[in-house]
Design a binder for these strands. Structure first.
Lengths: 201, 201
DNA sequence: GGGCAAACGGAAGCTTGGTTCCGCTTCAGG
DNA sequence: CCTGAAGCGGAACCAAGCTTCCGTTTGCCC
């Protein structure tokens, strides 16, 4: 191998104006379709919805996985934003902020099937994304710690429990069609179960 | 069309001895593989594990869906059996029987990835199976009613909530690898949340 | 034992959906 | 305006898996 391997001409980091525009369109279309139908949407459909050929799509993203990854990143940032918003509330107790965040996570997952899958798949194959979203873990940890310190929630609450709850709720939310309205009840049960007075043993 | 349409020769309901044996083998292999790898196993692999050609597999079952359906039926019967067993316990309070059943459902789902998917997919496309499993719904309803009547669990508990809990737990259990041990904690939170003292408002 | 419906194996066929390829078009710098 | 790199479209390609087909084998009944 020579001193400078140039196997790939390495495309410039700066995109031409039209290419940039198309990139946005593709992301928007993918966002839209995946929110509605989940990760199973076909690349062809995304391209069509974006008003672009598949070739263009593949010029921008390495493969389907890559496109999904990009959207996953977005999703987790959305979640992180909700978390920050909640943590910043001055008018609420730590327990209320905890409840607020879990509710927000439900709302986000309900509005977007993609995120529900993100939560699951991200947990497995792509767990890196969740963990690499700046501040997400750290803020969750803080949310838990503050609620425990306040004394209103179960003393053994850990940040991972918050993740489990959101993940579990997301799953039920995704099946809204066949278990209509049942997630609200489960949410209530879980929030109650997180309270100090509920903790057994 | 004549008085007796014989489009299909209508295969005899009674199988030849070897055919019967192979049918069992196929089911056993499918059970095994799907428990380990979920519904994604390939028909070819199932046939191979059963020591049989794919053709044979398709002679017994209409298609992959049909095979899965057969196993799903089994799974829900397994669940129904656990439920009956729990309901029959004389030595326990209704609340303990409720806890016992939910724990049992977790155990079953943990031992068999297939059932977790069953719980989910059954909820959607195949909800008929769950509902057609003799006594499953009825017994769940009874489990809930008895626990409520006893007064130890939240008064607004409905049988659907039990389903939600099991379904949600199953989802987290399936991701055991990436959220190690977290389902036990969530189970605890939910069981606590089901108690009367936890119920808010 | 003989005959035949039932059963078998597994190669070939088909479908679905991701990915590549390449000739044509468009931007942007000189 | 001219030119070349960057971008574009979408038909063609390819892999994966489910399903079918058909020549051969086997259990079962007379």
């Amino acid at each position: 191998m020579g001193s400078q391997q140039t196997a790939e001409p390495a495309p410039p980091a700066i995109l031409r104006a039209d290419a940039q525009r198309n990139r946005e369109r593709i992301l928007a279309a993918a966002r839209e379709l995946m929110a509605a139908h989940g990760a199973a949407v076909e690349m062809t459909d995304i391209a069509e919805a974006a008003g672009v050929g598949v070739g263009t799509l593949y010029r921008r993203f390495p493969d389907k996985e890559g496109l999904i990854l990009e959207l996953l990143r977005e999703k987790f940032q959305e979640l992180a934003a909700a978390l920050e918003r909640e943590l910043a509330r001055e008018d609420a107790t730590a327990r209320e902020r905890l409840h607020g965040y879990i509710r927000a996570a439900c709302a986000i997952q309900g509005a977007d099937r993609g995120l529900q899958e993100a939560f699951s798949s991200a947990i497995d194959e792509h767990s890196g994304i969740a963990y690499s979203t700046p501040g997400l873990v750290e803020s969750t940890r803080r949310l838990a710690a503050e609620a425990v310190a306040e004394g209103a929630v179960r003393p053994d609450l850990q940040w991972e429990d918050i993740v489990s709850c959101c993940c579990a709720l997301g799953h039920v939310i995704q099946h809204e069609d066949s278990l209509p309205g049942s997630w609200q009840k489960l949410l209530q049960i879980q929030l109650d179960g997180l309270d100090r007075r509920a903790a057994s043993g």
